[in-house]
Nucleic acid binder design. Sequence first.
DNA 1: TGTACATCAGTGAACGCGCGTTCACTGATGTAC
DNA 2: TGTACATCAGTGAACGCGCGTTCACTGATGTAC
Lengths: 240, 240
Amino acid sequence: MAAVPRAPFRPPRQARSRATLDRLLAAAEALLAEKHFAGATVSEIVARAGSSVGAFYARFPDKEALLECFDERFFASARAQWDAFLAPPRWEGASLADVVSEIVLLLVRKNRANKALLRALALYYRSRPDPRFRDRAARTNDYVLAKVGARLRARPGITHPDPALAVGLGLQMVAAALREQILFDEGYVARGIDDDTLARELARAWLAYLAPGGTHAHAPGSRRDAHRPRRARHGPRQGR
Amino acid sequence: MAAVPRAPFRPPRQARSRATLDRLLAAAEALLAEKHFAGATVSEIVARAGSSVGAFYARFPDKEALLECFDERFFASARAQWDAFLAPPRWEGASLADVVSEIVLLLVRKNRANKALLRALALYYRSRPDPRFRDRAARTNDYVLAKVGARLRARPGITHPDPALAVGLGLQMVAAALREQILFDEGYVARGIDDDTLARELARAWLAYLAPGGTHAHAPGSRRDAHRPRRARHGPRQGR
DNA sequence: TGTACATCAGTGAACGCGCGTTCACTGATGTAC
DNA sequence: TGTACATCAGTGAACGCGCGTTCACTGATGTAC
């Protein structure tokens, strides 16, 4: 109650205001799918939530705190999901190719599932000149790299002379490409490509970068079905 | 004088107003390096240019036309530069690895040299919900892919089962990664990497994706110095 | 060369709009005794 | 169970600020004869 560095919002104390907060967040996220953060006005958010501007400012100190709230929630959930995903029992006997494939697949799914929010966050943070925001934008990436990098480098088979660089830059290439593809609907021939093909090809490229010779004869296809799609809602709402 | 679809700005007719226009554009570009398009106000632009708002609106119909003017100029210059770069005599005896390397190097240099402008354009176009702007953002990319793709596929050595996909998606990975790296100063381990290493590694990854086995024993190192750096101003002004 | 006029170029105060934010007020929920 | 009071929650008109844009005006440059 006292050590909180900067309360992103005053937490609700009654069920009623909690419901209002949920409606506000849902309305804001829906609006962010249609326009960027600056374009989604407070009046429009509260109107869509069936609330009022006063209720909004009773919860948040200002408009920016809304994005911060989203960011906190998303980062916490993403971290938990990656921790669960990377738990050791899942990876016994998995080859380098398996690990790469599944990481890329999860990246694609997370970007697809949280497209609107991630796009809004990326645009907002990147439009701020303050480097504090730049770090904020890369926070999830950094976390994933720290966790994923260790697991990847633990596998044998990386023939690139600088494994850490190949892991990090490979992740950057993969993540950057699928962000442009999924979040911003840009992309070269990839415009209109489906998510599974995208994931497969990005994994193939990353793997080839890590091990140009091709050392993926490890546990041949044994784990092709290891990832029960736990929250598989990667829709094909592509294109146009 | 009559068939112009939508004049981005009224062209100057005296030397004096041409100089004013130049100062306006220079001031705007300098400001775009510090803040995004919406943050660079007309008042601030004209103040920095030593001009006035009236002079601005005598030249441009509205503020957006300023960005359009930049876009037109940049796209035309980029197209010319790529056409010159891809002229056939340059490429006699060049291996697949040579072509990939030089393309990536040019991409890195162009992004570095036009960092402020490209970032502002990317942010602006990506923040518009209208797909017209999305296409606008990908315009240069599409052009490069059309030109570069043909030249790459003309080389022997691509062992990927779908060469067009490998060329296109590879270009997307490379371009997306270096955009995040250079334009937005993001990136994983790559934060702090120098441009030459970045170019070399991105080229290595793309090449490995095109030809996983490694068929770059073609013209062994013969063209390592083929690219006289014609406008080599890729500075090491890297991360903060 | 000179004069009259048209057009180009530039100025900056003023306008209007839209936005985030405030605030005086009403109603709902919890709590103490 | 009832009553008094404090706090939570919500309302929406009004405010103020900053921005893009306009406009009445002055000065500079070109042109016709």
